[in-house]
Design a protein around this nucleic acid. Structure first.
Lengths: 210, 210
DNA sequence: TAGATTGTTAATCGATTAACAATC
DNA sequence: TAGATTGTTAATCGATTAACAATC
């Protein structure tokens, strides 16, 4: 409640999802209180930094000797990250990766839902309980439901075309799994998910250590 | 050749894969030279930063008026990131996500290969041309092939058990797709791939803008 | 009360950006 | 040569860490 509208540091914003995810587990384990020290230790973050981060998001200050109420803190972070409002996304490219994403049920806790899939040649009418439609239907769908988020899981060769189609129908943020650099207007947000690069970063770090 | 052993800034190391990926495309398009300005523009990075990054990795300095030779620069980055040496990984949990990863052929350019999959109940002998074996075989396999990298794509409830199994057989780095916080010795590297959090970060940024 | 834990102010550190000289 | 581009040095900025006071 208190300082919900304060602008957070970018770095803090990047760490909040880590706390959120960890707190979720603690709640499952029935832990009523959590201290900054425990979070710091578990997530390998400097304790002072954790305290600063928590101080900037918690509506109720932490209590010396006890720490923070787990579910209180969880909800504070949730609201700061906007996970308590729902956002709807569409997915294009219902291949094997697309299907995994449509079936994935972890999005709910993050205020997200993939509401439909589109494909040039739909092989099934439904995946994960959500409709799969022909790509021909996407324009009217995006406009009718005012969709702002698109997920691209098509082959690289199709990615730019799909991106253009999404953007010209009002999509403002794109999560791209195709290993292609998309050219988009500056006002469109893009996040490239390069799985190979992601794994490679881990091995680079491993080598650096050895 | 020149300064291959110089230690790079962490921030530079984080940007190299972006350059690498973009240069790969430029090579496909037959672009012989690339300037720092083009890279900066395309990737939305400050031009001075790009020049600094490139200066710290390029074996041959960029030429005023021309820029860098695309394939020369590509190879320099490749060697700095260690993508020219192969690393082998195993994957545990050959479900729908696991299969996608085993079939994914983008790892090659990043010096990586998933050499086998393991599952408690293998439903196929082979996926993406790689053997799928029973989890019972993993201990001897890891030791025999001296595997350092493990990928976890099992349900959350199994993730810790699998992680322990990997680590106790010599694995030093884990790429974890299960939404669980794993407890591991400090010397083991872990990268959590939380797809929901990843997409949520995009929407958080989108909201911040609006 | 004593001790643990929070929260804040100041110091340090690293990364980014600006200005400019060097080069083809 | 003139102009474009690189590469470096210095200034700014932001984030992390250290020190410490406040609180239950």
């Amino acid at each position: 409640m208190k300082k919900n509208s304060i602008i957070l540091l970018k770095s803090t914003l990047g760490r909040l999802p880590l706390y959120y995810c960890y707190l979720e587990e603690m709640m499952k384990n029935g832990e009523e209180y959590v201290s900054s020290a425990v979070l710091a230790q578990s997530l390998s973050i400097n304790p002072v930094q954790v305290r600063k981060d928590l101080a900037s998001v918690s509506s109720v200050p932490g209590r010396p000797k006890l720490g923070f109420k787990t579910n209180q803190l969880y909800n504070d972070i949730k609201s700061h990250l906007g996970y308590d409002n729902y956002d709807e996304a569409v997915l294009v490219g219902v291949g094997s990766l697309g299907k995994v994403l449509m079936k994935y049920n972890g999005f709910t806790n993050y205020g997200l839902e993939i509401i439909a899939g589109f494909d040039a040649n739909p092989t099934s009418k439904q995946v994960g309980g959500k409709a799969v439609m022909s790509i021909d239907m996407i324009e009217s769908f995006l406009q009718r439901f005012n969709i702002k988020i698109g997920i691209i899981a098509v082959p690289s060769s199709e990615a730019q075309k799909v991106a253009d189609l999404l953007v010209s129908n009002g999509v403002q943020a794109i999560w791209n799994f195709a290993p292609a650099t998309l050219r988009l207007p500056d006002n469109v947000l893009i996040k490239n998910e390069n799985l190979a690069a992601s794994l490679a970063a881990l091995t680079t770090e491993l080598r650096r250590r050895n």
